[in-house]
Amino acid sequence: MKTKVQAGGVSQSPVIDIQDLSLVFKTADGPVNALHEISLTVQRGDFVSFIGPSGCGKTTLLRVIADLEQPTGGRIQVNGMSPHEARLARAYGYVFQAAALYPWRTIERNVALPLEIAGIGRDEQRRRVDQFLELVELQDFKKKFPWQLSGGMQQRASIARALCVRPELLLMDEPFGALDEIVRDHLNEQLLKLWLKTNKTIVFVTHSIPEAVFLSKRIVVMSPRPGRVIDIIDTNFPTQRTLDIRETPEFIEIAHRVREGLRSGHD
């Protein structure tokens, strides 16, 4: 699978290419520099985390990639297109802070929603829904309504919903932020397996240092006022890792470097 992707000419270019990107919100209290001259590339198959304190622009940056916010300066390309074109081409799946499942739809109909919108046939819808519900281990709950499921299960369903349009790119905005630590650990492990299995490019926003270090190949440390990138850290953990690596010196060292970066940005 991987060799096939790399064989294509286009695939050598980065999935996300950001140059000097800025975003200024106009508010009643004057302009707010949400993003300040950010440059960043995300390669195919990467797992990149944005980490930083609240107000550092990490969610805004993800929303710019998803065409949910419009930048006021700089250049951004997603899959070689503008974010607007990428959105209409359904190049990405987006997982929000909350599951945002529609309560009047069963789990399977929720997962099928983006397929319905894209005008994909009923049979194909059913096939894909089954496939991705199995991937997030919810196949036994497909006839249930979202409010009958726990928060962790709801978030897994929303991940299946984001994946079922088969996007190259998965954008996740603090998807496990509202869950308790045990559920979050479990879902982190599952997400890692899912990333290895599907070979997607994942951009993941979080404010949890252990979560970022455990999941990512690259960690983008951001700082607020104005929102900017202050450090980019590459990790080199084995691909088949479990939560145990959080006890290793390498893990602790990287976590330390992230924390230092966050602290320096806070002055």
Binding site: A66, D67, L68, R87, L88, R90, Y92, Y94, F96, Q97, A98, A100, Y102, W104, L113, P114, E116, I117, A118, V165
Partner: peptide
């Protein structure tokens, strides 16, 4: 309609009618 649910439809590139039928009318029920 909550912002997140609306953003979801927007991220799918849903049309006005699709958003109306699949999200906003059920919310209004």
């Amino acid at each position: 309609v909550a912002t997140m649910e609306r953003d979801l439809m927007y991220s799918y590139g849903a049309s006005y009618n699709q958003t109306l039928l699949k999200l906003r009318l059920p919310t209004a029920l």
